[in-house]
Amino acid sequence: MCSRLRLTISSNGLCALVSALLMAAPGLAHGAEPDEVGIIAVVMRSDGAVRKLVREEVYAIFVLDKRGNLQPLDLPETDPVRAAFYMRLAGKSLGMMRALRSTLVFTGAGRPPKQLELAAVHERLANDPTAIAYLPMPDLPLGVRVVATLAPAP
């Protein structure tokens, strides 16, 4: 059997550095607008092992990387749902989350959730009973179970 080493280049990888530098200028004005996002659901496949999570458990999975056997998924930073999710869950802005993730990764204490585009998140949820993600409540795909919700601040 040919043994292979699985390799992950986190986020968009090294290649992104070059493209990011080239694309930074048009991206300067792009900002998430978390205030406009409605209720966010934390979801798993309907036959997943988890039925309900409290906020502290969601925080541990997505912020502290205390994930157990679950595979948390992140939406891209450009998606306003991601900014709203972490603002409601942890009170952290995009920049603050980047700082926390840096600390997590570069202390060797953990790794951030895998980042996928929305369509890929749907696909992963359909195929992986351990995948856990956050999605806007009105746009949930079939076959998922809501294990927690985060509503906008009143």
Binding site: S3, R4, L5, R6, L7, T8, V105, F106, R111
Partner: peptide, 16 residues
């Protein structure tokens, strides 16, 4: 080295 699974483990690459 590709994305095949194991059995040599999993290598994560991060940088700044």
């Amino acid at each position: 080295v590709g994305a095949d699974e194991q059995p040599w483990g999993h290598l994560h690459v991060n940088g700044f």
